[in-house]
Design a protein around this nucleic acid. Sequence first.
DNA 1: CTATACATGTAACAAGTTACATGATTAA
DNA 2: TTAATCATGTAACTTGTTACATGTATAG
Lengths: 196, 196
Amino acid sequence: MSLRHALLDLLAAGEPMSGYDLAQEFAVSLANVWPAQHSQIYPELARLVEEGLIVQTGEGPRGRKVYEATPAGVEALRTWLLETEPDYGVRSEAFLRSFALWTLTTEEAQAHLARDRAEYARHLQYLDTAIAAVDWSTSPSMRGRRLAIEFGHRFFTQLVEWADWASAQVEAGLLEPGGPLPAPPWEHSEGTDAKV
Amino acid sequence: MSLRHALLDLLAAGEPMSGYDLAQEFAVSLANVWPAQHSQIYPELARLVEEGLIVQTGEGPRGRKVYEATPAGVEALRTWLLETEPDYGVRSEAFLRSFALWTLTTEEAQAHLARDRAEYARHLQYLDTAIAAVDWSTSPSMRGRRLAIEFGHRFFTQLVEWADWASAQVEAGLLEPGGPLPAPPWEHSEGTDAKV
DNA sequence: CTATACATGTAACAAGTTACATGATTAA
DNA sequence: TTAATCATGTAACTTGTTACATGTATAG
């Protein structure tokens, strides 16, 4: 159900888009949220048209088909947000890899962490450049999307910081038997207690 | 390919485990990294046995089968880390939802963010309790896993902070036309520049 | 005129989820 | 004795990936 809502959101945001445009969008802004290939997008668009949640409002060269969300489509988006239970699960191969770092030597782990660090920093820099290039005040969707972008910015900032921290721990001998262990995390987290 | 490496990592960590044990582990510590159901785990275990990456080393009541990783299995884990390109993509429905918050009213968005916040804080608290209950010095795998746990701790801390930030922005009128927009993210991120 | 980007689609396969199915042990 | 938990598995379905297939417009 997530893919269709991602498409619906993009098409409801204002600008009419083609399947090709949407695929581009998935390759950049949605790549780290809900990746999708064009082979998945085109059939889903056909289903959305069939259900009346989007309509084709234009065409272009090379058989280009341009779609927009219908009022029913926007309503479906709202219903999704308001009436379905969020799935808070996250899937990340990079995170999974960190579970297995102990099978590497200190040097190998350092190399792995350095590569991760570079990749996260590269992505963060790209994000910041993208943020700076956009006028976030133009439309309601843009204004709201600013929240999502901040989420991404903080996420990648945190990844870079984690990689640096992990690298320092490994350098200090974490992976060597008898090496020092870091202090518990709660010593550097304050003000995030549950309001329950 | 990720599921098998997650299983391999757990079985290589030291303690022999059954499919049931592994499913429990996926329901807790790996739930926010690489979720998996028992229906996916049992067939994968059978394949891993067939390929000689794990062996059944014991049995228990109710047809319980206990497995351990073979040296070939540990080597396969290392090869995965050292010789395959990481997939840095992240999939998160909660993150995707934040893209569509603009379709909600200020009040509706606040309710949604409050629910997210509570869920993240709850999970963070659970994580911290779990961290405190464990002796991280016992084995190489435990020592290394400390890095992954820190990753999770920071991730959820950041989510709580983001939800608070987003809520404050919405409260200030971000979703209302003409309302104030937050300052660009880079103003509160320092020391994470790419070392490229 | 030729390579690249644009543009849409389908087919075969792999991965993941939900539901079904069965039965043993244990604690109250 | 009965409910909960332990324990393993399969089947049907949905979702997602990779590869195949085709053709048009544009820029150099």
